[in-house]
Design a protein around this nucleic acid. Sequence first.
DNA 1: AGACATTCCTTAACACATTAATAAAATAGC
DNA 2: GCTATTTTATTAATGTGTTAAGGAATGTCT
Lengths: 140, 140
Amino acid sequence: MRKFDDSLPLRLLKAREAAMGFFRPLLQEIPLTEQQWRVIRALNEFEELESKQLAELCCILSPSLTGIINRLEQLGYIKRRKSTEDQRRTLISLTDKAKKMFASMSPRLEARYQEMTERFSHEDMKALEELLIKFCDVKP
Amino acid sequence: MRKFDDSLPLRLLKAREAAMGFFRPLLQEIPLTEQQWRVIRALNEFEELESKQLAELCCILSPSLTGIINRLEQLGYIKRRKSTEDQRRTLISLTDKAKKMFASMSPRLEARYQEMTERFSHEDMKALEELLIKFCDVKP
DNA sequence: AGACATTCCTTAACACATTAATAAAATAGC
DNA sequence: GCTATTTTATTAATGTGTTAAGGAATGTCT
């Protein structure tokens, strides 16, 4: 039987922990959680998104996202508005405060990302990314 | 700037979700959470472990582990005892009930693991595992 | 021996993950 | 046009992740 340490889910978890070790300290300065930053990062790229799209993009389940959105709104980082043609949908976007914060933080985080890539190896990073993308298509 | 979807932490998260898609349905039958199974799996291999070792192995922080241990004890799956030479340490092991449950579940989970590996590709799986192991050594 | 720091585990407080259930809006079918 | 179903977002309940702080046992130092 496969040994404990050989399980892929555990390896993915540990790798993720290793990666977050590069970014967590910076996010704590703001302070923002990892999930909050993921939401802000997505909104920075797509301008305005429905709650459902945001959940899909960020890989966060709707009930969790509800709470994250509430807290980010409380902090003044995002705005919500109701879709006019479908009253069920909530459209979410960044405030100016969030855009400024993002602009000042993202270069530092990007630098960390570069550092991480270099300490690993550019080639291995590329190979790892491709394998991960391919693996995500594997479904039961 | 790097696009949202290109972030390694997010890719690792999604890959982990894809992997867990194979195992979650089986664990829910028992029912056990993913973390509870990880703890049981570790204890099955190492017989008896200190809380700290268990946390390290399972990649679970001590405060989380305290709760997991309490619930597993409630469910009758694990036993705790105090170390005689160091009263601070708690030693944890599986009950017979847990060992039986593990024996009946692990073949089914192992079969799923095989299925996952085959749908991906044995070679890619091996390559992915090696890259993940290497990546875990990369530290800020 | 007695103050001191260290180590292990736990509790506390908050944020998020997961599943099930619910309320409201929109759609499908008749 | 009206019910039945589906879709979207939320709440509820429980379990875990994360950081900080706490208490008890051990180790250190003089």
